[in-house]
Design a protein around this nucleic acid. Structure first.
Length: 221
DNA sequence: AAAACGGGGGC
DNA sequence: GCCCCAGTTTT
């Protein structure tokens, strides 16, 4: 497992479809706006102590907060995790529901997290489109969309179904490494020539400055 | 459509 | 010091 982490960056909470849905749910909530390393620490800590919804729901908030500490938004996430676990016990007999609607009704679970559970937990066909996928797909000119949900639909149309998840993850990796929100490293980019957003980094200066002007602490295209 | 949540690591 | 982080919820 650690070798897989080292080589591919895969994590125990999402590394393939046999991972228990509850683990994926916990790990993915913890991963929101949080780097993989810190997500990993928090997810291992929580799941080792509370491997099922019943034990997590019964835990004290202080205990969960302490375990979730390495992740960002740890107070909010600890509260949501415990509430979600309680709902799983109360309404679903301690199981994780398998529909997008039921999942997004859980606290802390939006469209992206729900799709992660469907894909990595249940092996269903779904596309967890995050900010990276949304940004990169637009920069490359694969889609022209306003929201990640639109990007999700558009990618379904232009990528063959057997390749969608792979393409999705590759776009994430590209966004995490070379093609960040503010300063894309176009000179080093292997798909520079195919990109409609900037060639040779020229158009990037303009867009980077534009993004900087947009100033409210949030990410933008 | 913004703002709040929320804090450490990188440069 | 500013940028970045596999988002979601509330104003």
């Amino acid at each position: 497992m650690d070798a897989l982490v080292a080589v591919y960056g895969v994590r125990p909470w999402n590394w393939h479809t046999r991972q228990p849905p509850f683990h994926v749910l916990v790990g993915t909530i913890l991963s929101q706006r949080t780097r993989d390393e810190k997500t990993d620490l928090a997810a291992r800590a929580v799941l080792e102590r509370f491997p099922d919804p019943a034990s997590l729901a019964a835990a004290s908030l202080e205990t969960v907060e302490a375990l979730v500490r390495p992740a960002n938004f740890y107070r909010t996430k600890a509260r949501r995790l415990r509430e979600a676990a309680a709902i799983l016990c109360r309404r679903y007999g301690g199981r994780v529901p398998e529909s997008l609607e039921e999942l997004t009704a859980l606290p802390g679970v939006g469209r992206k997290t729900a799709n992660c559970v469907l894909v990595y937990g249940f092996g269903k066909a779904a596309l967890p489109v995050d900010v990276h996928v949304h940004r990169i797909a637009n920069r490359l000119g694969l889609v022209r969309t306003r929201t990640p949900e639109e990007t999700e639909r558009e990618l379904w149309e232009i990528v063959p179904d057997r390749h969608r998840l792979l393409v999705n993850e590759l776009l994430v990796k590209h966004g995490q490494t070379l093609c960040g929100p503010r300063n894309p490293r176009c000179v080093e980019c292997p798909v520079n020539a195919l990109c409609s957003a900037g060639s040779g980094g020229l158009k990037d200066e303009g867009r980077a400055q534009e993004a900087r002007r947009g100033r409210n602490g949030r990410d933008s295209l």
